[in-house]
């Protein structure tokens, strides 16, 4: 059987809210090392990769590898019934056709159980090479969210250019154009507000803002968003979930005709 208890149930709520508009349904894969998911959006332009390590859970048991297909909209409906401070336990029997979500209030005076029907989903698993990137930018998650939101009011795509000490986000639209530059800033006294750039080679790539805005829904999960870019490769946008794992998104670049 599979059983996993997450004391900070809010994490699971935030993860599902961050991905439910991007992917309709997905297989959640559980094995002894943890709980993970890899799924592409229906147009195969972006990919979500979630991994929650077994040791990030208060209790974790997975006797055999299981893949549980769930409709994200249904999962979201159920998790909305959990309070932000509830602990969430997921349970499923081997070969079971449901997964049970148990919500416990901090004082354990309220216990609720919701069963979600599992579904068979054909999913294509992509092999993502663990390559080194030309540039890595770590910036406050809220700042990244604001940049992609603001630029979306002007254009549909963003050109992200990284140099040794700054990252520039630029867009062009019918009403004009916009550029936002963030300089490297390693403020030791305010680590949550730091912007760090690690670069092997200057890089400039163009992406659809619609998807980056969708990725930014993961903002509540982490203080920082980490952008990893390489010439002519998909961008990786990572949100580290302290002590539990990470939620990562890949987005294919716009290609010059």
């Amino acid at each position: 059987m599979f059983e996993a208890r997450l004391a900070q149930g809010a994490l699971l709520k935030k993860v599902v809210e961050a991905i439910k508009d991007l992917i309709e349904d997905a297989n959640f894969d559980c094995n002894s090392s943890g709980f993970s998911l890899q799924a592409m959006d229906s147009s195969h332009v972006s990919l979500v990769a979630l991994s929650l390590r077994a040791d990030g859970f208060e209790h974790y048991r997975c006797d055999r590898n299981v893949s549980m297909g769930m409709k994200l909209a249904s999962l979201s409906k159920i998790l909305k019934c959990a309070n932000g401070d509830d602990a969430i336990t997921m349970k499923s029997e081997d070969n079971g056709d449901t997964i049970t979500f148990m919500f416990e209030s901090p004082e354990q005076e309220r216990l609720s159980e919701f069963d979600l029907k599992l579904m068979d989903i054909d999913s294509e698993h992509l092999g993502i090479p663990d390559n080194e990137y030309d540039a890595t930018v770590k910036l406050p998650a809220a700042e990244f969210q604001r940049i992609v939101k603001d630029l979306s009011t002007i254009g549909d795509t963003v050109e992200i250019s990284v140099t040794k000490d700054a990252v520039k986000f630029g867009t062009t639209g019918d009403i004009g154009n916009a550029n936002i530059m963030c300089r490297q800033n390693k403020a030791a006294d305010k680590p949550d507000e730091s912007t760090e750039i690690d670069i092997n080679e200057a890089v400039s790539l163009t992406f659809a803002l619609r998807y980056l805005n969708s990725f930014a829904k993961a903002t509540p999960l982490s203080t920082h968003a980490v952008l990893k870019l390489s010439k002519e490769l998909p961008i990786l946008v990572e949100y580290h979930i302290p002590e539990v794992g990470r939620l990562a998104f890949y987005l294919a670049p716009k290609i010059e005709d």
């Binding site: 592409m40 990919l47 294509e124 992509l126 993502i128 998909p234 890949y250 294919a252 290609i255």
Partner: peptide, 14 residues
Amino acid sequence: KSNQGRLDSFFGPS
């Protein structure tokens, strides 16, 4: 003009 790339053309099946 630029076209949207697809992930399948960058990452192969695992």
